[in-house]
Structures are given as structure tokens and as C-alpha cells.
Write a protein that binds this DNA or RNA. Structure first.
Lengths: 296, 296
DNA sequence: GTATTGTCTTTTATCTTAAAAAAACATTTG
DNA sequence: CAAATGTTTTTTTAAGATAAAAGACAATAC
């Protein structure tokens, strides 16, 4: 087969949502910008919308004929690209189901099980190998190393080095740096969470990631910034399937983040080191406790 | 087309070299181990050797009929896999010729220029992207970030963090650890270089890499160990095409390594920090000085 | 009976191909 | 004539095909 049309389908759905609130659509380049796709895809979308009777399209005029209904949207199963499907099912195997360290995997077999071509799977594995959880011997199979206690310790060791260094870089930023404004905005968001934590705790991981990325960006070092991808990936999937104690965990994290933000604003290195360490320590403890096979 | 037979050709050449010194060959599994290939490939090699009249092969007996001559060997152009060809030509563009930061590259065009298929090239670029020199926007091109001063500074910043930490981990190793014996052996090798540096300076980079990998391994952290791949790659190619001052550079490095080794053996943290820093500082200076467009 | 060889099966590396999506170029419209 | 639309070309994504290489199993030799 060939390239899937998931880009089109996702953008089509987004365009339908857009149409719920408007009665006409902007120019093709503008719409492309809004949907994050090329004009070629925009025109495909417009053609389909016209065919579905949602809009009347004639050159510059794209007028809504009727409000979009649920049946107009492409179902979720069709909007995921093979790359996304592979990532999710692979991470599920690795983190949710848990695999024995040393398990070997073959590209062909895994591709068949997930239902994608070998090339997509192969590219995913190559991309994924930088996370340190799999390894390949040339002309031979991939070896799963497993999400073990050792992995978690090695990961957090680097994370702590990088985050501490980034935090120190942060307080050296000029007063006028947009990072300080972003920090203020995040402080407000955290207070919002502290108030209504019970209702929103599932969404905290997104704020958590944005907060730590803001700090890491202050390092102005691509290796430090990129390494956060590893952490984000692990935390994203691991906690998604391991929600035990999520609520209390997040309440603690919000408090620690607020202390951390305070310390950053004080520009006091001793306070900062203490606040940062405190948060990283509790993050490590939480991660280790959630691992299978560890009594805690 | 299909998989290339470079594994066979390389192993065939190595087997011919082996035959120069022996008058018969060992069992198939043993030979496979010696050549680093599977028995399937061993049997292909034996069949070809027999056909070329180099050996007489009948079951367990593989007797040499004549000494291999130059014409028996596969030429160098045929023994490189597409993956190796891609790596070399890509690195040449990037480091030797130097590219403007921000240059965009298309997979298809580059594949045509190098003379390989798009999938091989694509896989290389994905693998290479972890080095922080290229970046990709989905459904669009790759962007070369260039081997700039910023890159060199970001790279050395991490390198210094990791190496210092590894060096401290090294002196905590048990007396019985094989790493100490390996360090002694390397010290001797360094003394060999110090004596005959003029003749061998081109080979120093190999010893340099082994030395630093020995230190990094003491960290027992896969992220630190893996990161040395980035450094090794950069140093390998960069100095290969930038030999100016190589001789003096290596003489200095040997002296610094010996001081570094001494400091490790003393297990004195203050001395170690000084020796390690001194070497890393001069490595950084050398790298920065060799960059184009920097006066120094 | 263990190591070696002979045979067969599976898997990887690589190229080719097809459709989707982007990008470039040409034409029209306000 | 600048911004939009119409058209064509190029490039990426994804799957499939094929020979090389690895791996597994059966048969043989010492």
C-alpha cells in the first residue's frame, strides 16, 4: 500500500470543528496555517466538505450550508498514522504489560501483530532506540532491555544533573527574558490546580511537562532539551497505565512546583538547589515505587 | 534491488588474510566466530574459495591449495555497505565541506547523489538525528543545523559533565575491578605513544576513544555511555579531515592522559578534578580552534 | 554422544513502487 | 500588483518484493 491519508482526515475533522463556530471559511493559505497543513491538503478538505454538502465552495467563497454533525467526522481509528499506532502499541507492551529484560523481537513479527508495514516499524525502532530501552545487533534482532529499576535510576541520574544545571541557568536569565513571564503564567496555572485538584488531576502531566521544559530550555543546550523527550515519553506512558495514587502524587507535585517557582524567583542558589532537589527526589521515589517487583 | 552482499565480501577478504598464515581452515562454527558472521555466510565463503581454487573443500577438510594473491580480494568499493557509504559521504558534506546552518535537504535528492535507495538514507538520517546536527519537520524536509560554534559548545558542556562524573565513579571502583587492569594496560600503551609519537600520531584517535570509553563505562549509566558515541563520531570525522596540528595536539593529549591516569590511580578527588578539567579544557579549545570562521 | 556438516526456514537490508502531502509555478481576481 | 486560486512537479510516507544473512533443525562423522 502507500502513504495513509491520516493528515487529511485529522485536518478535516479539525476543519469541521472550526465550522461549528463560523459560517464561512478564510482563504486557502490562511486555512492551511490554521490547520497546520499544506494548501494541497486544504483543497482536498474543501472538496470533500463541498461534496458532503457542508459548504458551498466556489473560488473565494466557502459558505457553510449546514452545521457539521457527528457523522461527518472521521472516526478516531482512521485518524491515527501508522507511526502513532506503532508508538502506542509498542509502549503498551513495554510499560503496561511489562516485558522480561532480554526478550528479543523481530521486525516482521511485530509488524504483523500491530498490522503495519515493516518499514514503518523499523523506522520507529531506530527512532526509539535512543531512549535506551532497546538495542540492535547488526543483521540480527532487536533486544528489549526492559523498563527496569536500573533504567529508572540511570534515567533519573541524568535528569537530576540536567535539571539542576538548567535551573541555575534559569536564574541567570535577564529580567526581560520571556521565560520569566512564562514562569509567572505557570505559577498562576499551578494555583488553579491547587484549588481544584480533585477535578483536574488527570491533566496535570501536561502542565508538568510544560513546566520542566521551560526550565530545561534555559540551559540553551540542545542535548539537555532533547533529553527531556526521553523523560516526557516515559512519564507520559508510564503514568497513563499506572494511575495508582495519581491524585495525591499530583497534589504533592503542585506544592513542590510552587516552592520550586518561588525559589527560582528568589534567584537564591541555595534555596533553588534545595527546592529543585526536593522535587527531583520525590519524582524519583514515585517512579521507583511504581515499578513492578519492588516492595515499597 | 535487494540486500547487498557486503557482509560476505568483507568476511571473504578477512578469510583470505587468515589463509595467508595458515594452510588449512578450522570448523565452520569456529570460522564463523573468527570472522564474526553466521555459518551460512561461512559456507558461502568456503564455496567461493573452493571455486577460486584457493582451497580444496570436502566436508571437514579445508586445505589450502595456493597462497591468496591480490586479485583474489574484493576491491574496497564493493565491501562497503550502503549504510557505511551514506555515513561517510554525509559526514564529508557536513564536516569537511561545511554547510550553512539552515540548509534544507531532501531525502530523494541526497539518495540520488549518493547513489543509494531512499529507505537506507532515511534510516541513516533518523539514526543520525540524535547527534543534534539535523532536524526534521513531519511531512517535510530535513534541516541541517550545521557544525557550528554553538554545537561544539553544547557538545563539550555535556561531555565535561559526564566525563567528570564518570571519572569520580571510576575511583570508587573496587580494587579488583577489571577496569583498573585495563587502565594499567592503557597507561603502557600511552607510554609507547610518547616514545614514538612522530611515527604513529595518526592512530592516536583510536587509543583516545578507548581511553575515554573506559572512563565513561565506570558511570554504569547507559545515557552517559551512549553519549560518547556522539563525541566519538564528531572527533573521528572532524579530525580525519582536519589534520592541521595533529601531531602536536596528540603529543599534548598523551601527556594529559598520563597525568589523568596518574590522578585516577591516586584516587585523590582534588587531583583528579584538576587533571580531568585540564584535559577537557584543552580538548575543547582544540575543537573550537579547528572550527571554520573562528580566528584563533 | 558431542561436535560438525547438510538442509530448510526465518529475518534483515535494500530497493522499488504508489499514493498522500508539500512545494513550486502559472494564472486569475479584486 | 498583491493576494488568492488553479495546475504541475517534487517529495515524503508507507507497503511490498527480493536476495543476503542469520537461525533452526536434521543428518552425519569422529
Amino acid at each position: 500500500m502507500s502513504k495513509t491519508s491520516t493528515v487529511f482526515k485529522q485536518a478535516y475533522n479539525r476543519c469541521l470543528s472550526l465550522l461549528a463556530a463560523r459560517d464561512c471559511l478564510p482563504s486557502e493559505p490562511e486555512l492551511g496555517l490554521a490547520l497546520g497543513v499544506s494548501r494541497t491538503t486544504v483543497r482536498t478538505i474543501l472538496a470533500h466538505l463541498a461534496e458532503a454538502g457542508v459548504i458551498a465552495w466556489d473560488k473565494r467563497s466557502k459558505v457553510r450550508l449546514r452545521a457539521p454533525v457527528d457523522a461527518d467526522f472521521y472516526p478516531a481509528e482512521e485518524t491515527d498514522s501508522p507511526a502513532e499506532i506503532i508508538e502506542r502499541s509498542f509502549m503498551r507492551r513495554l510499560l503496561a504489560q511489562g516485558v522480561e529484560p532480554g526478550t528479543q523481537i523481530t521486525e516482521l513479527e511485530l509488524a504483523r501483530e500491530i498490522g503495519v508495514g515493516t518499514s514503518s516499524l523499523r523506522e520507529f525502532l531506530i527512532r526509539f532506540s535512543r531512549f535506551g530501552l532497546i538495542e540492535k545487533r547488526p543483521n540480527s534482532r532487536w533486544m528489549l532491555k526492559g523498563f527496569t529499576r536500573e533504567f529508572a535510576l540511570e534515567l533519573t541520574e541524568i535528569r537530576e544533573m540536567f535539571e539542576l544545571r538548567s535551573a541555575f541557568a534559569f536564574i541567570e536569565l535577564a529580567e526581560a527574558s520571556p521565560a520569566w513571564a512564562a514562569l509567572d503564567a505557570m505559577e498562576a496555572e499551578h494555583h488553579g490546580f491547587a484549588d481544584a485538584i480533585a477535578r483536574h488531576y488527570v491533566d496535570f502531566s501536561e502542565l508538568d511537562e510544560r513546566f520542566h521544559r521551560l526550565i530545561h530550555n534555559a540551559s540553551r543546550n540542545r542535548f539537555i532539551v532533547d533529553f527531556y523527550d526521553v523523560i516526557a515519553m516515559i512519564f507520559h506512558y508510564h503514568y497513563q497505565w499506572n494511575k495508582a495514587g495519581g491524585r495525591e502524587r499530583n497534589a504533592v507535585a503542585v506544592t513542590e512546583h510552587l516552592a520550586y517557582i518561588d525559589a527560582l524567583k528568589s534567584r537564591d542558589k541555595v534555596r533553588l538547589q534545595a527546592a529543585c532537589r526536593a522535587h527531583l527526589d520525590s519524582a524519583r521515589t514515585t517512579l521507583l515505587r511504581s515499578l513492578p517487583g519492588v516492595v515499597g
